[in-house]
Computed example of a mutant assay.
Amino acid sequence: MASGTVPARMLRVARWWPPLFALWMLFVGDWSWLIGVWGAAMAFIAAVGAELVVAQGLLDVRGRWRWCRELGPATLAVLTDFGIVVRVLATCVATGRREAGTFLHDAGASGRGPEPAGRRAWTTLIATWSPNSYVLDISPDSGRRLIHDLRPHRSSERPS
């Protein structure tokens, strides 16, 4: 991707800023002038960072709407896994034993370039919503994923 002219890059940064500022305010959940100023500054820094990553061709920001099909199963896994985690914690409290969890390897999205990098980022984000499963790493070369499950449950790892 070409780096573009300075005004074009500034316009792209200006397009990144409003959603990033809105996300800041959503996550903070509070409003004051100081929080607003920090949010504006952090959104600007994130927007410049996003523009630099996209300009270097490290990530393709075009929408991949077909990936959104994974949101439903991932949301259902969050609810199911909440029950799994509560059951494991209750058992640990009742018996006085710790549950260590399990590391799993499996194969998946490999490849170099912006789209495979975006796919790995999306997979890591969505699969880590679940309280039972955490994606530690996805290899760009082989596509192998390192996942930690408190209690192995395949639907917890989706879309991983």
Results as ranks from 00 to 15, higher is better:
A2C: 02
G4C: 07
G4L: 14
G4R: 07
T5E: 01
T5G: 04
V6I: 12
V6H: 06
A8P: 03
A8W: 01
L11P: 00
R12H: 08
A14P: 04
R15Q: 13
W16F: 08
P18C: 06
L20T: 12
A22T: 13
W24E: 06
M25Q: 14
M25R: 14
M25N: 05
L26Q: 12
L26K: 12
D30L: 04
D30G: 06
D30W: 08
D30V: 03
D30K: 06
S32I: 01
S32T: 10
I35S: 07
W38T: 15
G39L: 07
G39C: 08
A40N: 00
M42Q: 05
M42E: 11
A43N: 01
A43R: 01
F44V: 15
A47K: 11
A50E: 08
E51I: 04
V53K: 04
G57N: 09
L59M: 10
D60Y: 04
V61S: 02
V61F: 02
V61C: 02
R62W: 02
G63F: 07
G63I: 07
R64H: 11
R64E: 14
R66V: 10
W67Q: 11
C68Y: 09
C68R: 04
C68N: 10
R69I: 15
A74W: 02
T75L: 13
T75V: 14
L76G: 09
A77Y: 01
A77H: 07
A77S: 10
V78W: 09
V78C: 07
L79I: 12
L79G: 13
T80K: 10
F82R: 08
F82K: 07
F82T: 15
G83D: 02
I84Y: 06
I84W: 01
V85T: 10
V85I: 15
R87C: 04
V88D: 03
L89H: 05
C92N: 11
V93D: 01
V93Q: 05
V93S: 03
T95I: 12
T95P: 15
G96N: 03
R97V: 15
R97K: 14
G101Q: 01
G101C: 02
G101H: 04
G101W: 03
T102I: 08
F103A: 07
D106L: 09
D106T: 11
D106S: 08
G108H: 00
G108C: 00
A109I: 13
A109R: 09
A109L: 09
R112S: 15
R112K: 09
G113D: 08
P116W: 04
G118L: 11
G118Y: 09
R119E: 15
R119I: 11
R120A: 14
W122R: 06
T123L: 01
L125D: 04
I126S: 06
A127W: 05
T128Q: 01
T128F: 02
T128N: 08
S130W: 00
S130D: 03
N132Q: 05
S133C: 14
Y134M: 13
V135N: 04
L136V: 06
I138E: 02
P140C: 05
P140L: 05
P140V: 06
G143C: 04
R144Y: 08
R144S: 07
R145N: 00
R145L: 04
L146K: 05
I147K: 06
I147D: 10
D149E: 14
L150F: 04
L150W: 03
L150A: 02
R151N: 05
P152S: 01
H153L: 14
H153D: 14
H153E: 14
R154E: 13
E157M: 06
E157S: 10
E157H: 03
R158C: 12
P159R: 00
